[in-house]
Amino acid sequence: MRKLAVAVVVLTGGLLLYAATDFAAWGDPESPASDSDVSKHFIAETGVDTEVPNMVTAVLADYRGFDTMFETVVIFIAGIAILAILKLTGKDATKTPGKRKDEVDDAPDLIVTHTVRLLVPIIQLFAFYVLAHGHVSPGGGFQGGVIMGASFILVALAWDLPRAMDRLSVDRAILLAGVGILIYAGIGLLAMFLGGEFLDYAELSTIFPVSREMARYHAMLGVEIGVAFTVTTVMFAIYASLSSKGRLEGGL
């Protein structure tokens, strides 16, 4: 196996290095990737079309909105799949698993819990900031969602899993993940009912008192909120399932 691996690796490496000599030079502004009409169009027209200074957010949530929606669906499916793989059902679920020898059953550490108690509100506030400020600075739904999910994971690490599950149970988490996708698709469908195409946010200006560009701006925020819902909840659901072997109790 090892010899086969080395052979494959050497072959692939040779091919890739051979191809690497044909790449454009490092940081070349004239390289095909940077000089293509598509990239130039995004850089030049994003501000005109959407009023969003952060091009990455604009391209992510608007121009490639369809793609991002299904990326969110993939994350949602991952959350469901983990529950399906790990959650104990039938006979296994009813019998209470014995405590393992290495399971932590000490009281939660005082210093750690107090620091976490102090930090978690700030982290969650920062997550909202990242989510809402994603239009003018780095950030957006994915980052804000992950930070939000991390705050719940932090609670679970400092105390124990049940304490975090009191705030966000896994069933409710999966429900909220679905809600996130519904928010996303709902904004797209709303645009469709108003006469545009699916996810053509500019049409929302017919019912909201804003210009077409600002309609896209605000609809992007709504879409990012949907993404953040899904990412937050799925991250926590994955952690809860993984850390407790699918028992959703005890845990790390």
Partner: peptide, 20 residues
């Protein structure tokens, strides 16, 4: 402020884990 809060806490948590 964040570092002042988190860095000693993480050191403490590691120490405690080692002690236990």
């Amino acid at each position: 402020l964040f570092i002042m809060l988190t860095s000693p806490t993480s050191t403490h948590a590691l120490m405690r884990a080692g002690f236990e």
